[in-house]
Design a protein around this nucleic acid. Structure first.
Ligand code: FES
Ligand code: FES
Lengths: 161, 161
DNA sequence: TATATTCCTACAATAATGGTAGGATTTAAA
DNA sequence: TTTAAATCCTACCATTATTGTAGGAATATA
């Protein structure tokens, strides 16, 4: 029962992308250093996210990555699923032919329920939700008294694996 | 996101133990062959279940294993947890010191929620539930018309991984 | 005593994870 | 036009986890 570094790195990178909310593409060098993730590894991760249409990649100088949709429309299950691949805790849930007599298997339904439940939890969180948790939640009316020094985000914020 | 063979083998072995409902200890040789699990591997799995008090082991000739409690009182989460170990999808959920700044980490709470949810699903299934799904559900009043020939369970029933 | 069992520990083959390395390609800026 | 900064691609590799196997020691019954 593991969510590998890929899933966690991808989540953190996407969250940072959301928080920066930059109109210009953000280069991975920036995110890699702020999140302390190997650049090369992160490249591969982001490439697959781009392939799935969650981010838009801009090549060439002053290129980088942009969220493909508003942060409120990107949920964790999408991110985790694309980088982790199949989320079924047992392979036969996805492909019944892998197990001998899957038709009569009792536990299979339960593994399936486990998968559905996990994805349900992840689907209930969008990047916007996560941003709100970070304390960047002063959307509607500026009501909360924010610290004067704008929370800079330069040094490794939300570090921690 | 995986439940390894240990968790699945343990579940199937326990289910078979429940279905046999034998007053005499059932030797692993029997279960291993009926479930097509390596005997030596199964030994190790059952030993840890015994250590956790889910089954009772009887050593020596004509020994074997017995459920330590009625099938209705043993849930899947206990089985899976003991053989799989920590079920947290990310290690810092269990031990916060493993992640740098876990105090300010947003995603950590979510990984924790994932773990809780999975365990919740597993906890909602007892061995008795699983037996019922197998069609051995004639508990309360013998109302359902059971096949005359007692369902023998000898050949590999509920095979499939 | 012979036999059938659990218990214990060490080893090993395979697969998955978590990267690194080295470039090729693209594109904006100088 | 050149240079530099970025993504893209693919192959390799080290480490760890998984999934067992092997061989016997301990235990208890018949
Ligand atoms: S059929 Fe795959 S777990 Fe039973
Ligand atoms: S502190 Fe471990 S995931 Fe954030």
């Amino acid at each position: 029962m593991n969510i590998s570094t890929k899933g966690r790195y991808a989540s953190r990178a996407m969250l940072e992308l959301a928080m920066r909310n930059s109109p210009e593409p953000v280069p991975l060098k920036t995110i890699a250093s702020s999140q302390r993730i190997s650049l090369k590894y992160l490249e591969r991760i982001m490439t697959s996210l781009a392939g799935e249409g969650l981010v838009i990649s801009v090549r060439g100088k002053s290129g980088g990555y942009l969220l493909a949709r508003p942060a409120a429309k990107i949920t964790l299950d999408e991110i985790v699923k694309t980088v982790e691949g199949d989320m079924a805790p047992v392979s036969c849930v996805t492909d019944a032919s892998l197990c001998g007599r899957s038709a009569v298997c009792v536990t299979r339904d339960i593994w399936r329920e486990v998968e559905d439940t996990v994805l349900g939890v992840l689907r209930s969180y969008s990047l916007a939700h996560l941003m709100a948790r970070e304390g960047f939640a002063r959307q509607p009316d500026e009501s909360r008294d924010a610290p004067d020094s704008a929370p800079a985000l330069d040094t490794n914020k939300q570090r921690g694996e």
